[in-house]
Simulated assay, not measured.
Amino acid sequence: MNIHGLTPNKSKTVEFPYVPEEYMHHFVRGYFDGDGSINYEKYVVTFVGGSELFLSELMKVLVKQQLTPSLKDRNSHYRLFISGRKSIQTFSKWIYKDKTLYLQRKFNEFNKEKLAYHELKDRAIKVTKEAVLERRRIFLNQLKVNGCVKLTSEKIGISPYTYKTWLKKDRIFEQEFNSILNERE
């Protein structure tokens, strides 16, 4: 196999190639189109790969773009994440500058953003139980004031995915949420 240029377990050992800086965004866009995904509701971009070495080097490239990616070992593969509303737009602006070839459906996901770039912020979200409960309380109080779920989500800076998850996982939150909406009808 080796004499024919084939390498066993290549996906686990592939190295990041040399790419001139002026073409790096094109290379990353191609890799993203093949082994990346975006979930705009969660404000996260993900890359998947079998080579820790490759993804570690990609992580360095992204850090040079003022992004703060994180790399997770999932036993059989690795995932590299970029999260945050402003961060994923920063990533998008970089990979799609002077674009030629790209997947339209992934490009369209980035265009779901309604705010201007200068208005975007990444949140430093506390994930302690107390912090999540506090965000839920703030959400419910804002919902009482304005009566609109969409407006409430935008005002406190959460995605629709977040409050829908709360509804599924927290029976008390679900009851208070429904009570507020029923009072408004």
Rank of each mutant, 00 (worst) to 15 (best):
P8T: 11
Y23N: 12
M24S: 13
M24T: 08
H25F: 09
F27W: 04
F27L: 02
F27I: 06
V28F: 06
R29K: 14
R29F: 04
Y31G: 03
D33C: 04
G34F: 04
S37L: 03
S37A: 14
I38G: 04
K42G: 04
V45E: 05
V48C: 11
G50W: 00
G50D: 11
S51Y: 10
L55S: 05
L58H: 05
K64L: 11
Q65E: 09
Q66Y: 09
Q66D: 02
Q66N: 12
L67V: 07
L71V: 07
D73A: 06
D73C: 01
N75H: 04
F81Y: 14
S83L: 02
S87F: 10
I88W: 03
T90N: 10
T90R: 13
S92I: 02
D98T: 12
T100K: 14
T100F: 12
L101Y: 05
L103V: 02
F107R: 15
F110E: 02
E113D: 01
L115N: 13
L120N: 06
R123N: 02
R123I: 05
R123A: 03
A124T: 12
A124G: 07
I125L: 14
K126V: 10
T128V: 06
K129D: 14
E130F: 06
L133F: 07
E134A: 10
F139L: 06
K144N: 13
V145N: 12
V149E: 12
V149W: 05
L151Y: 01
T152R: 14
S153G: 08
W166E: 07
L167C: 06
K169W: 02
D170L: 08
D170S: 00
F173W: 11
Q175P: 04
N178Y: 10
L181E: 12
N182L: 05
